[in-house]
């Protein structure tokens, strides 16, 4: 290390890990992009499915979801969508809610609510797909 390392108490290991004050580095940024990329084909497929099959009526919707490939794609779509949405809402909460107790409560509600919705969606798709 050069002269600058003599002026800081940070270890070179700390700097090379590059995780910053939030302790998770670029993880949030990366997973937000990955889920966004996954959602491009999945969401277009879902809108097409809505128009061609799902919106007709309940039986048509159930028959559509019961197809294994559709069930898998729908599962992936719903989980990626809820995850991407939770990451986005988290940033909105962090940006606009400043009172610590409100901010933490909102973040916890968003995270736990997302997990509940993920479980409910997975169970619903599983029930229809497995008959």
């Amino acid at each position: 290390m050069t002269v600058s390392s003599k002026k800081t108490f940070r270890s070179p290991l700390k700097a090379s890990r590059g995780l910053g004050s939030a302790k998770d580095g670029t993880h949030h940024w990366v997973v937000q992009r990955l889920s966004a990329i996954a959602l491009i084909p999945l969401s277009i497929w879902f809108v097409y499915a809505l128009l061609t099959a799902i919106m007709a009526d309940a039986n048509a919707a159930r028959q559509f979801v019961a197809q294994p490939v559709n069930a898998i794609l729908l599962f992936l779509l719903v989980e990626a969508m809820l995850y991407h949405g939770a990451l986005g809402v988290q940033v909105v909460v962090e940006d606009y809610i400043h009172k610590p107790c409100c901010k933490i409560t909102a973040l916890v509600v968003v995270k736990l609510g997302t997990v509940v919705l993920m479980a409910a969606a997975a169970l619903a798709i599983g029930k229809i797909a497995l008959g």
Binding site: A120, L123, A124
Partner: peptide, 11 residues
């Protein structure tokens, strides 16, 4: 709403 729709469809 999408999750509610799926839940309604299944249960």
């Amino acid at each position: 709403i999408i999750v509610a729709w799926l839940f309604s469809l299944a249960f």
